[in-house]
């Protein structure tokens, strides 16, 4: 098997008596298109928080390639190539779209602490922002402040900021959550056209999205991995059907 780019070994997380992650052994392959599904409260976002360093595990470890990053702070993990988006928009609401991107790009390029040259004179930052905006078709909104954008396009900025970090691993936490179905194709198209060399892990409730996008699926239930396999295996898995797919079929 190919060496995973991101891996967890025996990952546990407790909040008091509540086990939100239980002995999770999870591996993400380079360039993967991997989905995590599971009912509400299964610990999907918790897993993302453990992978990105927002939460520290109670036991177990996280590896990026062969490096143990368990003790590494969130901001350092970003510099090592792990980027994420948020389930609920976590943007710089009062700033324009291009200013949102520039913050991420400046940080990545290492000039965010520059105090002498005006930000507008860093042409390499501007060019990179322009490139990403064009890719995601946000170029006409470059100067629009986030709070003036429709929700669907705000979700797109979530992805744009993560891409601006030039990640090796991209964790998408329900990228289409809250987007009206008429607009959701914008997000799905963006997800479909992500660069192939980025390993993408997506959390999603919408089964159409999951089965359209994922080459591999992990099912999480009550903090533990219930099943993992390619989409056909998961769709055929009796246990998964009982716990999860059966449930959503009612909706």
């Amino acid at each position: 098997m190919i060496e995973p780019i991101l891996e967890t070994r025996g990952l546990d997380k407790n909040f008091g008596a509540l086990n939100v992650a239980r002995n999770i052994n999870f591996a993400l392959a380079p360039g993967a298109r991997h989905a995590i599904i599971g009912p509400n409260g299964a610990g999907k976002t918790t897993l993302i928080n453990l992978l990105t360093g927002v939460l520290k595990p109670s036991a177990g470890s996280v590896y990026l390639g062969t490096n143990d990053i368990t003790k590494m702070a969130e901001h350092q993990r970003v510099k090592h190539g792990i980027a994420r988006t948020f389930q609920i928009n976590t943007l710089f609401m009062g700033l324009s779209v291009i200013d949102n991107l520039n913050l991420a790009i400046s940080e990545r390029m290492g000039n965010a602490t520059g105090i002498l040259r005006p930000a507008g004179n860093y042409s390499e930052v501007m060019e990179e922002a322009g490139r990403i905006l064009s890719t995601l078709k946000l170029d006409n909104d470059a100067l629009t402040e986030i709070h003036e954008l429709p929700y669907g396009r705000q979700r797109l900025v979530e992805i744009a900021i993560a891409l601006a970090l030039d990640p090796k691993v991209l964790l998408l936490d329900e990228p289409a959550a809250g987007v009206p179905s008429a607009e959701s194709h914008i997000i799905l198209d963006a997800v479909d056209s992500l660069p192939k060399d980025i390993a993408v892990l997506i959390i999603e409730h919408d089964m159409d999205v999951v089965f359209r996008f994922a080459e591999r699926i992990t099912v999480l239930v009550r903090g533990a991995i219930l099943a993992e396999g390619d989409p056909d295996e998961i769709a055929a898995d009796k246990e998964v059907q009982a716990v999860y797919l059966g449930e959503s079929a009612h909706v």
């Binding site: 969130e74 350092q76 980027a83 943007l91 009062g94 940080e107």
Partner: peptide, 17 residues
Amino acid sequence: RMLIGIRENTQRMSAIG
């Protein structure tokens, strides 16, 4: 600009490194 980012959203600033 980075300071303004911290003012606008501390959580996201950590998430961009």
